[in-house]
Design a binder for these strands. Structure first.
Length: 244
DNA sequence: GTGCATGTTACGAG
DNA sequence: ACTCGTAACATGCA
């Protein structure tokens, strides 16, 4: 369930739990003793990229869903959850997630301006980071959570297609205005992802990811693992310019 | 039943 | 020390 927009959806679904007290907690997750949560009030819910942040008075919990992670709200789980949180008569269950306790103020831990879903997103800073890594392939940069926190493989594929940039282009060789265009597409598509994802119509909006042919010229998409990250990339080598 | 996936990290080998 | 390949993760889906 993993890209930035999915985390915003999750945050919205968890709003009813805000201000409520944990009445029971358990789970097999490492790095946390769930019993420490007992009696604590969930004061806020934040996200940074793909991190879900449950804020309690004296600490926060970072929850990362990874690729296989899932959650259930007030619905039965098949097996013991990695983290089960009971709030009176309501409950949240997370499966296959990584949990970490954060004892510092979140503002000291997170640079909100790197989060593509944040109001504080700063495109110029991201572009500066790209320029500082001239040898990095842009397909890898779009998965780098330090640069585009919250971007995943779908956002990568779609924003590269929309900006007309070949995934194996090197950051240092892409013109500044194309980098700006790419950054704009990342943000625009992420908003679209959020809007249509809520109603399960994201698939209708995908122009490249999972498609067989380019919607512009009907040539078959290339479909290969690219970059150091070796993640599946759909691209059209007519529409998408290689800056190598 | 099989295979694949919106992610990340840990580990061993070289 | 660094970088690469691989596995792993108590899932969900087509």
């Amino acid at each position: 369930m993993p890209e930035g927009p999915n985390l915003i959806m999750l945050k919205e679904k968890l709003q009813p739990f805000k201000g409520r007290q944990v009445t029971a907690a358990n789970g097999y997750a490492k790095n946390v003793d769930p019993s420490m949560l007992n009696g604590n009030t969930l004061s806020d819910i934040k996200t940074w990229g793909k991190h879900l942040l449950l804020v309690f008075e004296d600490f926060s919990l970072r929850i990362h869903m990874g690729l296989f992670g899932s959650y259930k709200i007030n619905r039965p789980v098949k097996k013991n959850a990695a983290l089960h949180l009971q709030f009176g008569d309501e409950e949240i269950n997370f499966s296959i997630v990584k949990v970490q306790v954060i004892n510092q103020p979140l503002d000291e831990v997170y640079d909100w301006s790197a989060d593509i879903m944040s109001q504080k997103w700063d495109a110029d800073k991201a572009i500066q980071k790209l320029k500082e890594k001239p040898g990095l392939m842009i397909c890898d940069a779009l998965l780098d959570q330090g640069i585009f926190a919250g971007s995943g493989n779908i956002i990568k594929v779609e924003s590269l297609f929309r900006a007309g940039i070949h995934p194996e282009s090197l950051c240092g060789n892409i013109p500044a205005d194309k980098l700006k265009e790419l950054s704009n597409e990342v943000i625009a598509f992420s908003r679209e992802f959020l809007k249509y994802g809520k109603t399960h119509h994201l698939g209708d909006r995908l122009q490249a990811y999972g498609r067989e042919e380019c919607p512009r010229n009907h040539v078959a998409f290339h479909k290969r693992d690219t970059g150091k990250t070796k993640r599946l990339t759909f691209y059209c080598d007519i529409c998408q310019v290689l800056y190598s």
